[in-house]
C-alpha cells in the first residue's frame, strides 16, 4: 500500500487545517507553514512521479475496501505528472503571492491549500462521485481566491464564475445519477466494464449522461462555447491565483481525457467514441 498516492491530498489538507487553527497568529506564520506545505508537496509528488514513470499503475483503496465498493485513488503516469505540475506551479504562485497579494484579504493561505487539495484530488480519484466532491472543494476554494481582495469588478466576475459553476455542479449530479441508475456503480474502471455490455435500449440514456457530463467538464475546461466565464475571471483576479487557474482548466481537460478514453472509450459498446463529432469544433 503506497501512501504516497493519497499524500498529495492529505498534505495540503493538513497544512490548511494548521493554518486555520492558527487563525490568530501573524501572517509570517501562515506564510511559513503554507510555503513549507507546498515544498513538501513538491517533493512528494516528485517522488510519486518518479515511481510511476517506471512502475505500473498504482491503485490505493481508501478504507481498505476493494474497488468497486470503496473509493480508489489511481496514480498512473499522467495523473502523477499532473499532480507534480500542480505542486510545482502551486509553489511558484505561492512564492509570488507572499510578496504582497496574500494580505489583501482573510484566509488566503488556507484557501490556497484547500484549492491544491481539490485539484490533486480531481487528478487522482478513480471514482466518479468522489470526483464531484473534489470538484466542489476545488471550486469553492477557487471562488474564495477569485474574490480575494475584493473590489467591484472582481466581485462581479467572481459572482458569474461561481453561479455558472453551481449550475454546472447540479448538472454533474444529474449525469452521475443517470450512470448509477443504469450501471449501478461509481468506480470509473468498473463503469467502463459495465458500459461495454450495456443493452442497446439503454445506450441512448448512457450517451446522454456522457454528453451532459462532457458539457460540465467543458465548462471547467473553458472550451468553446462554454469559455465565457474565463476572460473576466482571469482578468480581474490577482496574478498568482490566475496562474493557478491555468491548471484548474487543465483539470477539465484531464477529466475529459480520462473519462472519455476510459469510460466511453473505443470498447464501450453502444456508447463508444461518444465525443468525436463534438470535440473537434470545440477545440
Amino acid at each position: 500500500m503506497n501512501h504516497l498516492i493519497v499524500a498529495p491530498l492529505l498534505i495540503p489538507l493538513l497544512t490548511g487545517a494548521i493554518i486555520v487553527l492558527a487563525v490568530n497568529r501573524y501572517h509570517f506564520f501562515h506564510r511559513a507553514v503554507s510555503l513549507a506545505g507546498c515544498l513538501i508537496l513538491v517533493l512528494i509528488t516528485g517522488t510519486l512521479l518518479f515511481q510511476s514513470v517506471s512502475g505500473p499503475i498504482q491503485v490505493y483503496a481508501l478504507g481498505n475496501w476493494a474497488p468497486p465498493f470503496g473509493i480508489v485513488m489511481v496514480a498512473d503516469r499522467l495523473s502523477a505528472l499532473m499532480v507534480f505540475m500542480t505542486a510545482l506551479l502551486g509553489l511558484f504562485c505561492l512564492m509570488y503571492a507572499v510578496q504582497d497579494t496574500d494580505t489583501q484579504g482573510k484566509n488566503f493561505h488556507a484557501l490556497y491549500q484547500f484549492q491544491l487539495m481539490g485539484i490533486n484530488g480531481a487528478f487522482l480519484t478513480g471514482d466518479i462521485f468522489n470526483l464531484f466532491v473534489f470538484f466542489e472543494i476545488m471550486l469553492l476554494a477557487s471562488y474564495g481566491l477569485v474574490l480575494h481582495g475584493g473590489g467591484g469588478s472582481r466581485t462581479r466576475a467572481g459572482m458569474h464564475y461561481a453561479m455558472l459553476n453551481l449550475i454546472g455542479s447540479s448538472i454533474f449530479l444529474i449525469g452521475v445519477g443517470i450512470l448509477y441508475s443504469l450501471l449501478g456503480t461509481l468506480n470509473m474502471a468498473d463503469l467502463a466494464v459495465r458500459i461495454a455490455v450495456v443493452p442497446p435500449e439503454n445506450a441512448a440514456l448512457i450517451r446522454a449522461a456522457g454528453l451532459i457530463l462532457f458539457g460540465v467538464f467543458a465548462l471547467k475546461a473553458a472550451l468553446v462555447p462554454l469559455y465565457f466565464w474565463l476572460p473576466d475571471t482571469y482578468g480581474f483576479t490577482g496574478a498568482p491565483v490566475a496562474a493557478l487557474f491555468a491548471i484548474m482548466t487543465k483539470v477539465g481537460v484531464y477529466v475529459i481525457l480520462r473519462v472519455y478514453t476510459l469510460i466511453f472509450g473505443p470498447h464501450a459498446g453502444a456508447a463508444a467514441n461518444l465525443l468525436a463529432p463534438w470535440l473537434l469544433p470545440a477545440a
Binding site: 484566509n107 488556507a110 466542489e136 472543494i137 469553492l140
Partner: peptide
Amino acid sequence: GEITVLVIAGLVIYAL
C-alpha cells in the same frame, strides 16, 4: 471531502 467543503465555505464567507 464534504466536511472540507463546509470548512472552506466557512472560510470564504468569513473572508467575504
